[in-house]
């Protein structure tokens, strides 16, 4: 079946599910996705699950936060995804002396035309890698986060739209490291998903050590999807069927976090929306046209981990521990 083109993305109106009920992963689309996953897995070894999650996050039109120690491949992952998806790519290395203009761009006086000319900053790109986002000052962080939310930037009183699709993959070091400004909760909420990569396993690390230089490998990568295909895929994600029984499950999860004494706050409605959107995208990546509870469980750690704050209890619990506990605690209705 041929994909129905979905040219306009209006975040306010959810398109009705198609009457035939098979708007999900077409052979072409899933093949393209499979190629993306395969190609990325060749560079980032042993992390296929994280790659799929990252892809699902981007397909659900969300921004991604990768949090881990330096040197586990955060930047490489973002880079490879950009190449494989064929997106225009800019990398911004955040530092503590960075100003908002360094991201958005500046107007410079042009003598020939005798006027100010706007020189767009690195944010005007389809995929922006915001490296070590928690090393910048809150002012600079919020300039980036505003762009993420609005898909536009305002410079010298003029609003400029950002290209479509527009993704931000931000990486950050664990906030207990020196010289960081941790992102406040309200800004963490802007990220659809947060991933932790973790150390590679022994076999993957051995392959990495024996293999080719990663930079050469990235340079040789070819795009697997066109931007138009990517837009169509994003449209398809929104057509994935979500049955009432599944909404029951999502609500049960969300209500549990609000009732449970283990968390400071429960999940917000925005988090619930993100959970549904990511579950749809995950189902698409898995090649299904309907969301099943397993999809929700798969994306739950990434979506809920950075939004839930466990009541501190002596033992430090990681976000994936929390999510696993959450999945165990809530029966599927």
């Amino acid at each position: 079946m041929i994909l129905q083109p979905v040219p306009q993305f209006d975040s306010k109106s959810v398109p009705p599910s198609s009457p035939s009920g098979h708007a999900g992963a077409t052979p072409i689309a899933s093949a393209a996705l499979r190629r993306v996953v395969e190609q990325t897995s060749k560079v980032i070894l042993g992390k296929e699950r994280q790659i799929r999650l990252a892809l699902a996050c981007l397909l659900s039109r969300g921004h991604l936060l990768i949090e881990d120690l330096p040197g586990v491949g955060k930047t490489t992952l973002a880079h490879v995804l950009a190449r494989s998806l064929g997106l225009g790519f800019h990398r911004i290395q955040f530092t503590s002396d960075m100003l908002p203009a360094d991201i958005i761009g500046v107007s410079i006086y042009d003598r020939e035309s005798a006027s100010f000319k706007f020189h767009p900053g690195p944010i005007f790109s389809q995929l922006v890698l915001a490296d070590e986002v928690n090393r910048a000052t809150p002012k600079t962080q919020s300039a980036l986060l505003e762009a993420m939310e609005e898909h536009q930037v305002t410079a010298e009183g003029e609003s400029r739209r950002l290209p479509e699709p527009f993704f931000v993959i931000a990486t950050q070091n664990p906030s207990h490291q020196v010289g960081t400004f941790p992102l406040p909760e309200s800004q963490l909420d802007r990220f659809q998903m947060r991933l932790e990569l973790g150390y590679p396993d022994r076999a993957a690390e051995r392959a990495l050590l024996q293999g080719v230089d990663r930079r050469d490998l990235i340079a040789s990568l070819e795009p697997c999807v066109t931007p138009a295909e990517l837009l169509a895929l994003q449209g398809a994600v929104r057509q994935v069927h979500v049955s009432p029984a599944l909404v029951d499950y999502v609500q049960a999860l969300v209500e549990y976090t609000r009732r449970s004494p283990d968390f400071v706050n429960g999940l917000s409605p925005r988090a619930a929306l993100a959970l549904v959107a990511c579950s749809r995208a995950w189902a698409t990546v898995e090649g299904r046209d309907r969301v099943i509870p397993e999809d929700v469980q798969a994306v739950l750690p990434g979506v809920a981990g950075h939004r839930l704050h466990p009541v501190v209890n002596g033992v430090r619990r990681t976000s994936s521990d929390i999510a696993v506990g959450l999945v165990e605690a809530v029966p599927i209705p």
């Binding site: 599910s17 009920g21 069927h241 049955s243 029984a245 599944l246 046209d289 309907r290 969301v291 099943i292 509870p293």
Partner: peptide, 9 residues
């Protein structure tokens, strides 16, 4: 069962 409960039909 998945079709009936979670599918669109």
């Amino acid at each position: 069962y998945i079709d009936l409960r979670y599918g669109p039909e």
